[in-house]
Nucleic acid binder design. Structure first.
Lengths: 146, 146
DNA sequence: GTTATTTAGTAACATATGTTACTAAATAAC
DNA sequence: GTTATTTAGTAACATATGTTACTAAATAAC
C-alpha cells in the first residue's frame, strides 16, 4: 500500500496536537483555581479592557458560537461577574461589562495567564517568536482566502 | 483599567483560531463528499499504512479519547470500512484494519487531503515551512516538559 | 493453581455543544 | 404610518463528548 500520508507529520494534525497542549496548559491557570470554562475565560478577557459590549460583539471577538456566548454570559451573570444594562439605543440587546467582582477576578487571572504564555513561549527566542507570529498570520490569511 | 492582555494577540488564542480554520479547511475535503467525522478520518489515516492495530494503539496514534476511538471504530465497522479480528495473543482486544472498501476510500481521500495541506502551506516558502515545523516541535516539547 | 490486581473495551449516564424555532425589537418597503 | 423583513438573543431539541461503572480476559502475588 503506497501511502504518503503520515498522520504524525501531517500539518493540520500537528497543529491540532500543539493547540490542544497549549490550550490545556493555559486552562490549568484559569480552570482549577478560578473555576472558569474556556468560554467564560474568553468573555472575561474580552471585557477586560473595561469597555461594555453587546453579546453579539463578544461573540465576534471571542470567536465563540452564538449559543456558547449566550450561555457563558448567562452563567457569569449568575455568578455575579458581569453587569448587564439594556442598550437604550437598541432594546433587543444588552450591554455587558465586568462587575466589581469580575474586575477583581480579571486582575487576578490576567498576570497568571500572561506569565503562562511567556513560560510557554520562552523556548523560543524573541526573533523566533516574531517569526512564528508572522507565519501564523500568513496561514490564517490563507485560510480566509481559500 | 490597566490591561496588557489582548485576546486577539494572545498566542494561545491565535493558535486556537488558526487551528480551527485549518481544521475546517481539511474537513471540507473528507466530511462532505465522504461523510466522515474528524475522528473517523483520523482512524482511517492511521490504518492507512495497512498495518492492523488494536483500538488502544489507534487511540494513542490519533490523539483521540478512548471513547471517541471506540465510537469511531464502531461506526466504521457498521459502515463496512474496517475489518475486526480478535487478537489471539490477547483475547480482550481486537485487531483492526481497513476492509477493501476502507482501502478504496482511503486511496480516494488521501491525495485530496494532501493536496489541501499543500494548498494551505503554499503561502509559505519551503524554508518557512521547515522553520514553522521546527518552531512547533519546540513548543510541543515545551508543553510536555512543563 | 487459586486469589488479587491490572487492562482492553464498551455501556450507561451526565454534561457540553450545535441547530432549529421562536420572541421581541429594529429597519425597510410601500 | 402600516406591513414585511431583518436582527439580537434565548429556549427547546438533537447530537456529541467525556466520565464512571462494568465485563471479560490477562498478569501478578502468593
Amino acid at each position: 500500500m503506497t501511502d504518503k500520508l503520515d498522520l504524525a507529520s501531517f500539518f493540520p494534525y500537528r497543529l491540532a496536537e500543539l493547540q490542544q497542549a497549549i490550550s490545556n496548559s493555559v486552562a490549568q491557570v484559569y480552570a482549577g483555581r478560578f473555576n472558569l470554562t474556556r468560554q467564560q475565560w474568553r468573555v472575561l478577557a474580552v471585557l477586560g479592557d473595561g469597555v461594555h459590549k453587546s453579546a453579539k460583539t463578544i461573540c465576534g471577538l471571542t470567536n465563540l458560537d452564538k449559543m456558547q456566548t449566550s450561555r457563558a454570559i448567562a452563567k457569569m451573570l449568575e455568578n455575579g461577574l458581569l453587569s448587564k444594562v439594556t442598550d437604550e439605543k437598541d432594546k433587543r440587546s444588552a450591554l455587558l461589562s465586568l462587575s466589581d467582582k469580575g474586575v477583581v477576578l480579571y486582575r487576578n487571572i490576567e498576570p497568571l495567564v500572561l506569565a503562562r504564555e511567556q513560560q510557554l513561549l520562552s523556548v523560543l527566542s524573541k526573533s523566533e517568536q516574531q517569526q512564528l507570529s508572522s507565519l501564523m498570520a500568513k496561514l490564517l490569511d490563507r485560510t480566509h482566502r481559500l
